[in-house]
Design a protein around this nucleic acid. Sequence first.
DNA 1: AGTGCAGTTGACTTT
DNA 2: TAAAGTCAACTGCAC
Length: 486
Amino acid sequence: MQFINVVWLKRDLRLTDHAPLYSAIEEGSPVLLLYLYEPMLLNDPHYDERHWRFVWQSLEDIDRQLRKFNTQVLVLNSSAINAFSTLMTQFTIKHVYSHQEIGLKNTFERDKSISALLKEKDIKWFEFQTGAVKRGLKNRKNWDRDWQDFMRKPVLTPNLEQANWCTLPIESEKKWDIPYTWQTKARGIQTGGSELAWRTLEDFFDQRAFAYARSISKPEASRSACSRLSPYLAWGNISIREIYQAALKHWKTPGLRRNLIAFISRLHWHCHFIQKFESECAMEHRPVNIAYLDYPYEKQSHSIHFVKAWQQGNTGIVLVDACMRALIQTGYLNFRMRAMLVSFLTHHLNVDWREGIAHLARLFLDFEPGIHYPQFQMQAGVTGSNTIRIYNPVKQAQEHDPEGVFIYKWLPELRTIPVPLLFEPHTLTTMEAMMYNIAPDSIYLNPIIDLESAAAIARERLWSYRKRLDVKKEAARILSMHVKER
DNA sequence: AGTGCAGTTGACTTT
DNA sequence: TAAAGTCAACTGCAC
């Protein structure tokens, strides 16, 4: 049987700055590129069709680049165990190469079973660091410096010309029909693939980044002034190091410096949070601060209506609903508005963060487990260490969407209401509501909660809970683990 | 010109 | 990456 090296693609769907592919090619044996649509993930509530479509588009992009080498990615709809077992009947696998996956428990467990399988067959599996995130890190000593060092190292571009490509074995991948809806572009949602990742990057540094810092908090302006690289980063169409080094190239451009500093600091936070998740992955199932297991959330039987209204963008709070609807349609929202959505669910509605986390994961095209969990918990206030942020959706709208552009766009039924009444339609009199042509049973005349009293109650609940001794003790423990030591 | 006062601004604290 | 409250300093204005 033919010897091959398997390069197992996961959330690293690119052919540049790719250490596993680089090493596999260097080794010399024929290379097989493998991607698995795993039933375990297809059925996971964190994922949505939009993700698998993005992955498909990314794979198509890779195949386009591979065409001149007369090869393509082997795509299988299969569990990893089955896929590797099948491959082993066709080939003698010399090595397996992949990036470390800092993911949910299910992928971690899957990796452990694959590791066991490969070990049993005496096959070496080389796993490479993802970005600046270190596996099994005990503390944050020198973490910042190491981040810098990693980002400044030259990118590892595999020599595709030199590669020895393996002849694709199995007919099986052709038997499997990729759903039609994955193969059509989704209107309003970003399209996957490295080519588009690089076009987005260039367009950002050439045009959009000039407005970055001043627009980042605004729901409408952020959509063009932010980089929009997040899904490409999450699915690995481009590496964080490639983005970092591209940013540095524009360092001297007048008017860009401040924006680049703001942008690069966020690249840094990207790894920081994934590192946090890697170091304390139990946070997928419980609050980082274990004292919050007893937090007095709304009973599920009661919260279910709140959750539904929140999920559908039907709460009657204008900016909250506009944000959720934008997210459903486009898979994107700027950071501040994401935080506000979590704040509203967990604070105003007092719903357990675990009842909302998968919903946003499904909607975020750029869903990244290692960022999603720490961020969601932090915003939900269950870390016990970061300050509690209860966003006021009315104030946020007045400050960041003063003309109502974003709200009108996503809640067209309110187009007749002028600013500033738009921000608080429940204050309209019956006469005014009629005048503006708002249906008398509109949720916007009668929101699911009273914003002010809900915020006051949440403030009291959160701050009094934080005073508990067990909360403070846990907070101290967490701090010593994650905060940078110099 | 100095004084009293309402209203504003910004730094800082509390929740 | 919050919001509300407190307080001192400051401003504009009337007398």
